Amino acid sequence: MKRILLVRHGESEWNALRRLQGQADIGLSERGERQAHALRSMVATYRPDLVLASDLKRAVHTAELLGFPNAIREPLLREQDVGVWTGIEIAHLMDETPEAYADWRAGTFVPENGESWGDFRTRIATATEKALSAPAKTVLIVCHGGVIRAVLDEALGLAPARIIPVGPASLTILAFPKGRARLEVFNATTFAPILDAPD
């Protein structure tokens, strides 16, 4: 049976400040490095035979800390582009434009020069289809919180408004018995799950 393991990168320097990153190429914080390293043994138990990673350095570094320095870098797995909101603190958006921020989280608002949820989901679906069509039985994808929500929306019909942001260095698993997606694990960590993780 095919399985896809989805790992969100460890805490980044901007996650720690609760700034939206989008496709800004921000590195891991020291805490993020510890989180990713702590997840290594959990991921290893599944013995992935194909490893893909977003080409942004926070995902690549997480893959390295998980024990996969040769993960295939896939630009299609980049985070959703948030346009002019890149680098803005979430608290500022929630204070100044709370409805727009809530609608963006629900996938119904696009910041100026940003990527719509529909376009983002289509991009992630293309990357996921590559993983599903590969001969590997267990595929590890090291990526971003938005990417994981997009996969769950595409595979299970879970709209982004119905899913909390997955925490840093968390593991989500989808299985595909007879080709149909089934959620096996969501937001699992080696520490207490973070239920209010920044996007």
Rank of each mutant, 00 (worst) to 15 (best):
K2E: 10
R3G: 01
I4H: 05
I4T: 08
R8E: 07
H9R: 14
E11R: 14
S12R: 00
S12C: 00
E13R: 11
E13V: 14
W14M: 00
W14T: 00
A16K: 15
A16F: 02
G22T: 01
G22C: 06
G22W: 09
S29G: 07
S29L: 03
R31M: 11
E33N: 04
R34N: 08
R34K: 14
R40S: 13
S41K: 11
S41G: 06
M42F: 10
V43L: 12
A44M: 02
T45L: 12
Y46S: 06
R47D: 06
P48M: 01
P48A: 02
L50M: 14
L52M: 13
A53R: 11
S54G: 08
D55E: 10
L56A: 15
K57N: 02
K57C: 04
A59W: 06
T62Y: 11
E64V: 09
L66A: 03
P69N: 06
N70A: 12
A71H: 05
L76Y: 08
E79R: 04
V84I: 15
G87L: 03
I88P: 00
I90Q: 09
L93R: 04
D95L: 12
T97N: 08
Y101S: 00
Y101P: 01
Y101V: 01
D103L: 13
F109A: 15
V110G: 08
P111N: 05
E112Y: 08
E112N: 09
S116Y: 12
S116L: 04
S116V: 07
W117R: 14
W117A: 10
F120K: 13
F120Q: 05
R123Y: 08
I124W: 10
A125R: 14
E129P: 00
E129M: 09
K130P: 03
K130Y: 11
S133K: 13
S133W: 02
A134L: 10
A136S: 15
K137M: 12
K137G: 08
T138D: 06
V139K: 04
L140V: 00
C143D: 00
H144P: 07
G146S: 08
G146L: 09
V147L: 11
V147S: 05
V147R: 07
V151E: 11
L152C: 09
A159F: 00
A161H: 10
A161G: 13
A161E: 14
R162G: 08
I163C: 01
I164R: 15
I164C: 11
P165L: 07
A169C: 10
S170I: 10
T172L: 07
I173T: 13
L174A: 03
F176H: 03
K178E: 15
R180I: 11
R180Y: 10
A181K: 05
E184M: 12
V185T: 14
F186Q: 00
N187M: 09
N187P: 04
D196G: 09
